[in-house]
Amino acid sequence: MSASDNLIPVIVSKVVEVNSIIKRFEFKHINGDALPAFSGGAHIVVEMIDGATKRKNAYSLMSSPFKLGQYAISVRREDDGRGGSKFMHEKVVPGMEMKISAPVNLFALDLRAKKHLMIAGGIGITPFMAQMTQATELGLPFELHYAARSASQAAYMGSLKAQFGDAVACYCADIGDRLNLEALLSDQPLGTHVYVCGPKGMIEAVVQTATNLGWPAAHIHFEHFLSPPMGKAFSVHLAKAGIDIDVGPEQSLLEAIEASGTPVNCLCRAGACGQCETQIVACDGDITHNDHWLEDDQRASKKFIMPCVSRFSGKRLELDL
């Protein structure tokens, strides 16, 4: 069972060019019904039918959790990606019918927090937009620190500043504004939770700095934006199903398994949630582990793989599916 089993038919109600690299897409239920309620930090999986290719990418919901007439996501164009964002930018237009999953939240606010400290890098701003709306409505104290390469690439920076005022601090690298993490994380009241979403380096810096300062892991929350890496095509044998499947260069192993009709649990499709952890029956070759889930000894054992992001090269890979 997984969240993408029960897809919701939607219609693209609006496409907005936010800046040269980011577009916002708005969806309404095809029947005009309200979409499912959600909490700030939740994502949806968007199914993209691109000719014969079916891709599924996860995007954070940025719209208000209190307005369910429509959902909004923002997509950054990745020209050297495997084509999902390019498809969204080039092919998706208002009036188009698409399918999305119900929202799943792997990056929820800890509602016990005495303060919510949000740190965003670039397109990582999107989950915080829903969270700030939620926090404002529920009266929860929060602060956003938003870093980007330049003001022109920093989506929504101006409107967030206008809407939330002093609760938002912005840092644009091109004019030499840098976020001093150590100073920020050294001066937070007990009971603060920190949330970070952005590039890998930023997440690592926040987690490492907070940990070094003595923050408990339970107070550090992060969400990786990892789309499945591309690679060479490979074949896999599914032992229980008794079939061989081919994984294309731009396709993830998970997508190939799904396309064969074999069920796999999954939530994040980004190597973080652990749901798609699959046992390897036989492996003659090398696995490129791209996930954040498996332990080092599990990787070394060649007994486990996360099909949503990891790939294989070699003679034979047999999975317990």
Partner: peptide
């Protein structure tokens, strides 16, 4: 603790 900061043990 009411005046303490994150990073307290």
């Amino acid at each position: 603790l009411s005046d303490a900061k994150m990073g307290s043990q």
